[in-house]
Every structure is written in C-alpha cells, then in structure tokens.
Write a protein that binds this DNA or RNA. Structure first.
Lengths: 169, 169
DNA sequence: TTTTATTTTCAATAGTTTTTGAAAATTCAA
DNA sequence: TTGAATTTTCAAAAACTATTGAAAATAAAA
C-alpha cells in the first residue's frame, strides 16, 4: 500500500499539471488539490508551507478558489486566522468550474460568432455564402453542446445519473 | 452588412483568443481559423502574409494542424509549393480535437487517479478513507463524462442529433 | 488608543512559452 | 548531377505569465 502522504502529494502534483494544460494556474490547482486532500481546514501559513509557495501566491490562489465558490472560508473559534475548506462534492465543484469558464470564456465567443453569422447572412457572393456556412455550423454545434451541458448540469446530483442512463440507451 | 474581409478577420482574432484561453497556441488557432474561412487552398507564404507571422511559426502551426488531422495537404498540379485546406465539417474536427486532447492530457491523469484510488483503498485510517473517497469520486465522475463523450462522439454525424434529441426528453 | 496578528497588494524578479529568422536539409526540375 | 525553390529546424530574442516578498492596509486584542 502506498504511503498516504505520498499519494496525496502525487494527487497535488497531477492536479497542478492538469490545470496548467487547461489554462488554470498551477498554484491555484495545487491549492485546490491540497484542500481536497486535507481532512481539516487549513490556514494560509500551512498551505504556504505544504506547497512551498509565497504568502502572496497562496493568498491570491485561495482568493480565486473562494471567488469560484469551490473553497469556503471557515472561522475557528478563538483563532484569528482564516481557515479554508474545499467543497468535497465533486459534481458540485465540477459544475461550478464549468459554468464559470463557460460564462467567462465561451459565452463572449459565442456572441461574436452569432454576430458574424448574422452579419454575413445576406452576402450573395460564393465566398460570402461559404464563410457564412462555416461560421453558422460552428455556432449551431456549440449551441447544441451548450444544450447538452445545461440539461446535464442544471439539475441536482441524483438526476445526473438518471439522465446519463437515458443517454446510454 | 459587414465587410466580408472584416468578418473573417474578426473570426480569426476571436478564434486565436479562445485558443489561448484553452491551452491551444494562438498562431495554431489563427491558422486554423484562416484556413476555415478561406475558399481556396493556401500556401505557407500566403498564410505568413495574411497573419503576419514568421515562416518558422507558420510552418510549425500548419504541421501541428496536419498532425491533428484537421488540416489537409493539397497538391496543386504544376506548382511546387504545398497547399493546405481545413476540414470544413465542424463535427469532424471538433471530435478530432476533443479525442486528441483527451488522449494526450486527460487519459494519463485518469490513469494516475485510478492508481491513487487503488493504492489508498486498503487504508483503514479515517484520513486515508476520506482521501480515498475524494479521489474515487473524481474518478467515477470523469469515467461517467467519458462515457457520455464516447456515446455522443463514437457515432456518425446524423446520430449525433438523434442522441441529442433523446437527451432533451 | 496602541499594539500585534493577519491579510492584501503590487512592483520587481523569475520562469515559461512563443516567435523569429537565418542556416541546414530536402525536394524537384533542368 | 547541379541549382533553385521550398520546407524544416532550432538557438536566440521577445512576449507573456507566474511568483516572490516586503510594505501597506486591515482587523482584532490589549
């Protein structure tokens, strides 16, 4: 059996690397993994120490996770420090991250695609018609994918599995 | 009505920005967008000129897209240059990109999660059991999402819409 | 209030990724 | 073959992103 602390470290490293590849800051992903793998709330100092990162970095990373709504502040009586806990319900935080990234990065692009699609609709040249079709196709596919995502995600945890089963028929 | 060339430029810029946010090199995304919006095959020189990028960059970006299988080489009789065309079937290239990124970036992570999950299974401490559950939950959710993706993607274009409809019930 | 602990900010620094462009390699026609 | 056209490579430079750490701001206790 693997040493537990070793397994946790591997989880943190893997999570950090995955984040980097998908445009999520390595430290942010690592703090998230550290809190996910911790049994107790952690204060900034402990996070700095465990991940060997600066106070500034720790503070910024924690704040981002709290802003995302996937890490919560936890006050501990008789202690002046702020402590943090990760949302442990995987579906809950996966949804929050997905919704947040969609709103921030995908929605503006989809708006522009719709606009381009609309603005090239009347073009009667072959070149114009061809380009319009290309943009329209992308726009239609992303709309479809969005519909799937909404159907799957705008739902409580139990329904998720149910919809999944329906999907597999 | 928007000037066609202006619309194409906006498409290229938007696509480049979206790529950057999701870990796809800006130039690569822009070359893809340029070829998607072009009516004719393009040679490296024209791509360099239109996007104002260096020969090295153009060459690398094109090669990457060809490797992904979403841009094809096209030989033009009596011309020594290589020309390139983008796959215009949106579903086809969206699937190829998704499958490629999944294999390259998600699969190794899922393998490690499975390994960590297995290696912490026997841990009888509360801390160990809790961590095991966290990892296991992530692993189960990603497996479920993979199943959805396979069901939707390992299928021809017509079926995609059909499955989508089923999903919406 | 003053003191002390804690958090936040942000300019400077370090690190990473992308891009350039010229040289090397390759391809093909003469 | 030779030589011109074309593609590929890759070290160096530029651009971009992340991280540090000390100073400023804030919050709580004395």
């Amino acid at each position: 059996m693997m040493e537990l602390q070793e397994a946790k470290q591997q989880f943190i490293d893997t999570w950090g690397a995955l984040g980097s590849e998908w445009g999520i800051n390595k430290s942010v992903a690592q703090v998230h993994a550290l809190l996910l793998s911790a049994s107790n709330p952690m204060a900034t100092d402990e996070i700095m120490e465990k991940l060997v990162i600066s106070r500034g970095n720790a503070n910024m990373s924690i704040r981002q996770l709290v802003d995302y709504g996937i890490v919560y502040k936890k006050h501990i009586a008789g202690d002046r420090k702020e402590y943090f806990v990760a949302e442990k319900d995987v579906l809950k935080w996966a949804m929050k991250i997905a919704v947040m990234r969609k709103q921030k990065e995908l929605d503006p692009v989809m708006d522009i695609l719709r606009e381009i699609s609309k603005n090239t609709e009347k073009d009667k040249t072959d070149e114009g018609k061809e380009f319009h079709k290309t943009v329209k196709d992308i726009q239609v596919l992303t709309d479809q994918l969005e519909t799937i995502a909404n159907k799957l995600f705008n739902t409580s945890g139990g329904d998720f599995l149910l919809k999944l089963v329906k999907l597999m028929i």
